[in-house]
């Protein structure tokens, strides 16, 4: 077998861009199953405690949900545009896209902070007296709320870290039009976080 056994189209620099992307996707599949499992849990308890879930849903502020949805959609667009820009050798535009996404992520987290503190202030937090002594379904609803949005928030923080590293790589030309796997993979991660929010939003804020 010669050195160009497969992937004969790879770059002369020895970089395997499509392999890196495939590896990222394999990881994303595990993320889909992770959040999928939590959604199944939500669905089963929703079927069992429909009344309590409706009560719990009323506690959530729709406005926070809508604003955070729009912020994440804009940030996803900005990252997709940053990838397009790097492919077109438009470094400044690419950096602008990443910075926009980072700012959106920050606003998302600030919103989440206010949303959570408001609830904790009202005595709704894991193991609080109000939940433990209240109906089972309500306890389940807010337990799932904190686990799912919390895990999603952790993903936002990881995604922002990856985007920040990508930004530095673009600035220092380590990411360029012919090798942008780092930016592309960070983008894929960020889009997945957005994708998960697209399902969290109606389930918690709208359905009930």
């Amino acid at each position: 077998m010669s050195s160009k056994s497969f992937n004969s189209g790879s770059h002369t620099s020895g970089q395997d861009e499509s392999g890196k992307k495939f590896g990222m996707w394999l990881f994303l599949y595990t993320e889909i199953i992770l959040f999928g499992g939590l959604f199944v849990l939500y669905a089963v308890y929703f079927a069992k405690y429909t009344g309590d879930f409706i009560e719990g849903g009323k506690e959530l502020n729709r406005l926070f949900g809508v604003v955070n949805t729009i912020i994440l959609l804009i940030s996803s667009f900005a990252v997709a545009a940053a990838v397009t820009a790097i492919q077109k050798k438009e470094k400044i535009k690419s950096m602008a896209g990443i910075i926009t996404a980072l700012l959106c992520g920050l606003i998302f987290l600030i919103n989440k902070y206010f949303e959570w503190s408001h609830k904790i202030h009202n005595g709704i937090y894991p193991n609080s007296e109000k939940l433990v002594d209240g109906p089972d379904g309500l306890n389940q609803f807010f337990g799932l709320y904190y686990v799912i949005t919390g895990l999603h928030g952790v993903h936002i923080i990881i995604g922002m870290t990856l985007l920040l590293i990508s930004l530095i790589f673009v600035m220092t030309n380590r990411v360029a039009h012919n090798r942008f796997a780092m930016l592309e993979n960070s983008g894929l991660y960020w889009h997945l976080v957005d994708l998960i929010w697209i399902f969290i939003f109606p389930l918690f804020y709208l359905v009930i």
Partner: peptide, 24 residues
């Protein structure tokens, strides 16, 4: 350096249209 695996570039306009559709 010729790149045989032609990377597909999605135009800004397409991306913007997708974003607007997502808002709707």
């Amino acid at each position: 350096m010729e790149n045989q695996q032609e990377q597909h570039i999605i135009g800004y306009k397409t991306l913007l249209n997708v974003l607007l559709l997502l808002f709707v």
